[in-house]
Structures are given as C-alpha cells and as structure tokens.
Design a protein around this nucleic acid. Structure first.
Length: 292
DNA sequence: CACTTGACCTGTCCGC
DNA sequence: TGCGGACAGGTCAAGT
C-alpha cells in the first residue's frame, strides 16, 4: 500500500484517536506479524499508554510511556484500524469503508485499550510487521540509518533532491525515486504521477535528466504528495485510514491505473509498461522514451 | 561496488 | 465455471 501520504494519513488519524489511551491486552495471530513480541507480550505492554504517533518514511512509530516504541510497517496490504468500545469506527460509521467488521481473517495483531476500544493491525499478504523496540534504539535501526530525507521536510530543497538522485546516476529515474535510501516515502503511485507531471519518461537514466527537469520533478513530487495527503491517500485496493475509510487521491490521478484512458494534458492514450520491475503508467506523447 | 531480479504471501482478475 | 498464470501500493537477499 501505503506510501508516504497513506502512512501519514493513518498517523494523523491515530494521533487523534489513540494518544493517551492505555493498553490492556495484545493478541497476535502469527509470529511473522509481530516477530519480536516478548513471550508475555500482553504483560509487557499492559498499562503502557500511548504518548505520540510519528512517521518516518513509510514506517509508523507508536511511542509508549514505558519507553518502548511499536515500530510498524504496513508494506503492501497492511491496515491499522481503530474501533471504539461499542465497535464503532473512529468517526461514526463511514459509508465508504472496505471493512465490514473486525477482527476479520486478515487481522494479525489486536491491541485492546483499558476503555474497551481496539486497534487492529490487518494484513492480507503478511508482508507487514509490528516490532517492539526501546525508544532510544529506534534511530539505530538499520533502515533508519540508511533511509533518505523526507521529501516534504521544510529544509529539503530542489538542490538537495538533485544531490540525492546523483547517487544513482546509471539507474533509471523511476528506480532512483523508489529507492528509499535516496528519498524516503515514494512508491509506485507517486513515482508515476510525479514523472508524468515533469514530462520525464520513467526509464530515462538519471544522468540523462536535465537540471531543469529535475527541478520540475522536485516540484511535482511535492505537489502530488501534498495533494494526496489532502485527499486522504490513494485506495487502489486495500488501503484504508485509521477509521476504516478509503482515500480519494486515485480519483485525481493523471496516469496511475489509467492505462487505456486519455492523458489529461494532451489527449493521447495512456499506456502501461514495466520499468524498474514495476507496472508503470505513462503518456507516450508527453513522456518520450529514451533511445537505448 | 552498482544495479537488477526473485522471494516473501494472499487474493483477484484475465484468458483459454 | 474451472484452472493456470500474471499481477498487486514494499523491501531485502541473492544474483549478475
């Protein structure tokens, strides 16, 4: 799923819904989903309260008063959904939820709070995980040591963006955008959308993209990420926010999942191909393929 | 070393 | 309708 805008949307929801709540019970159905859970995870987490919910790249960080942090990666199909003690969604019953009831067969971990409300970690494909890490050690996690800067950080500039990309001169611009050590949080949707915005073909080698185009790409990337956060993210298949609601960015997408439809800029038919091992959507008129 | 490909899982969709 | 294969928002290990 979940790229930066989706994880940020979940973060904002959890911030509002669970901060200040105290854990009473934790159940995990597979070792894979919560690999380092203590044998007595329930007792370990009991009476810890949630002090903050943060995000770095596509990773969620739920900080606890016990000086531990629940580090969560949703990967492709993970969801974190909250229901109150009466089993109502966070903001009443949304009519646009993908979820009928919880727990369901994709539920991997269930957190129950002292007020009877619950937080469900669902993950159909079991790629996602929850880990319990001492808060001071979180920055030392290998991934956080290697991950690139946040693309929406106040101090992240076009020059810094170009500098990060320059680390991958001989790879395609799409592969570079998807590389989390270059820039944090970009996935397949926003890579395709921003490259269309900057009129760059995804298979172009980084070294062959002009400074002008890279500057435009920087602007377009920030634009699509911000627009998507505003729209609550993209629901392509499974994604829902902390209240079980879909996001609506996909309605505003210009190329992603729009193969066979017309380019909103020039009217040419959008095509789907494969770049960097991923399904890739482009306008053949606006984004000229590089000659090999 | 830099870069690309397969594996991890389950579910869905498409063509025969 | 049934069945096989390809594919799905991410990341890492293993390959070239």
């Amino acid at each position: 799923m979940p790229e930066l805008p989706e994880v940020e949307t979940v973060r904002m929801g959890l911030q509002r819904l669970v901060v200040g709540k105290t854990l009473a019970m934790v159940q995990s159905d597979t070792e894979k989903s919560f690999p380092n859970a203590p044998a007595d995870v329930e007792r370990f987490l009991k009476q810890a309260s949630i002090t903050a919910v943060r995000r770095r790249a596509k990773v969620l960080l739920i900080e606890l008063s016990s000086n531990y942090t629940l580090v969560i990666h949703l990967k492709m199909t993970g969801q974190l959904v909250y229901k109150d003690a009466e089993q109502r969604w966070g903001a009443g019953h949304p009519n646009d939820s993908l979820i009928a009831d919880l727990p369901d067969r994709s539920t991997r971990v269930t957190f129950t709070f002292t007020d009877g409300s619950q937080l469900f970690f669902n993950d159909q494909r079991k790629f996602g995980w929850v880990k319990l890490i001492p808060t001071p050690e979180v920055p030392n996690i290998d991934f956080f040591q290697r991950v690139g800067p946040e693309p929406l950080a106040d101090d992240f500039t076009a020059a810094a963006f170009r500098q990060r990309l320059a680390r991958r001169q001989n790879t395609t611009i799409k592969a570079a955008l998807l590389d989390q050590t270059v820039i944090a949080g970009v996935g397949n949707i926003y890579a395709d959308e921003s490259l269309w915005g900057a009129k760059i073909h995804p298979a172009t080698l980084v070294k062959d993209v002009s400074v002008t185009k890279l500057n435009t790409l920087f602007t377009e990337l920030q634009f699509v990420l911000r627009l998507s956060i505003e729209k609550g993210g993209s629901t392509d298949r499974n994604y829902v926010n902390a209240e079980g609601k879909r996001g609506s960015y996909i309605d505003f997408a210009r190329v992603f999942r729009r193969d066979g439809q017309t380019c909103p800029r020039c009217g040419e038919v959008i095509i789907k191909s494969r770049v960097a091992g991923r399904g890739t959507h482009t306008c053949p008129h606006c984004q000229k393929a590089p000659k090999k």
